[in-house]
Computed example of a mutant assay.
Amino acid sequence: MPEVIFTGPAGRIEGRYQPAKRKGAPIAIVLHPHPQFGGTMNNQIVYNLFYAFANRGFSVLRFNFRGVGRSQGAFDHGQGELSDAAAALDWAQAMNPEARTCWIAGVSFGAWIGMQLLMRRPEIEGFISIAAMANRYDFSFLAPCPSSGLFVHGSQDRVAPVKDVVSVIEKVKTQKGIQIEHAVVDGANHFFDGKVEDLMETVNGYLDKRLGVATAEDAA
């Protein structure tokens, strides 16, 4: 899994990139939790999401937002981080010019950034949003949501309670042809402490349903 450096709006961005073996494979971008609360691309959930896509034959990129790790710049309350995510997708597309589709996955703050990117980039055809902070960030821009995807929350999430996400999902669900699914991991908190395995079982099940069951050949 090569370490990569690419240019973002605030300077150098540090990432990890796993290229697909076959031409034309889809791209996945994975976005980490809040930079000011210890979120990095090495977050356990981000790492697991990265390999969930890599094992399905995607070209996958995870990276540090500005001001995190070796990425240059300073925290910008979401606006700059959205620009970083757009630059990451641009870089991945430049590396994979034959790719026609893309997925976006984000955790907590990263889920909010990911959904905003989804609204701006029509090539994004699927999303995974984990522990989306619908109580702290405005998700009303998802009207209509252009792609189907999955929201996952922990039943014991005190940082971003399930009820706030449910109200967002119910508004989005009415859009024609788009299927938004919502899964709750029983007993999990905002960080899925001790429940990452259960979380990934849910995510992998959803990806298998959307993409077909992963095999060793997909990643080979």
Rank of each mutant, 00 (worst) to 15 (best):
60 V>W: 01
51 Y>I: 04
131 A>E: 10
24 G>D: 05
146 P>F: 09
152 V>R: 07
178 I>Q: 14
191 F>C: 11
115 M>E: 12
95 M>W: 05
108 S>V: 03
150 L>Y: 12
102 C>N: 06
47 Y>V: 14
141 F>Q: 08
125 E>F: 07
8 G>Q: 06
119 M>C: 15
139 F>D: 06
120 R>K: 15
111 A>D: 07
8 G>I: 03
52 A>K: 01
140 S>W: 04
181 E>T: 15
43 N>K: 07
119 M>E: 14
25 A>E: 03
50 F>D: 08
120 R>I: 04
76 D>E: 13
128 I>G: 11
80 G>M: 11
169 I>E: 15
156 Q>S: 13
98 E>L: 07
126 G>Y: 10
154 G>E: 05
24 G>C: 05
208 D>G: 06
168 V>Y: 08
86 A>L: 14
27 I>H: 01
220 A>R: 08
186 D>K: 14
161 P>M: 14
153 H>A: 11
120 R>W: 00
203 V>D: 09
158 R>C: 05
84 D>F: 00
159 V>E: 13
84 D>A: 09
208 D>C: 06
78 G>H: 05
103 W>K: 03
155 S>F: 10
122 P>L: 08
154 G>A: 04
151 F>A: 11
14 E>V: 03
41 M>N: 02
215 T>N: 08
22 R>M: 00
215 T>L: 09
183 A>K: 14
199 L>E: 11
42 N>G: 04
129 S>A: 15
146 P>H: 10
54 A>Y: 00
67 G>D: 07
5 I>K: 03
108 S>E: 06
115 M>D: 05
184 V>S: 02
208 D>F: 05
114 G>R: 00
144 P>V: 12
186 D>F: 10
161 P>D: 13
212 G>Q: 11
130 I>H: 02
13 I>K: 01
56 R>D: 06
141 F>I: 06
67 G>I: 07
107 V>H: 02
94 A>I: 00
161 P>R: 14
42 N>W: 04
1 M>W: 09
163 K>V: 11
162 V>R: 12
58 F>T: 00
10 A>E: 07
188 A>T: 07
36 Q>N: 10
189 N>K: 07
29 I>D: 00
23 K>L: 05
48 N>L: 14
202 T>S: 10
200 M>P: 10
105 A>Q: 05
13 I>L: 12
158 R>A: 13
36 Q>I: 15
6 F>L: 01
190 H>R: 10
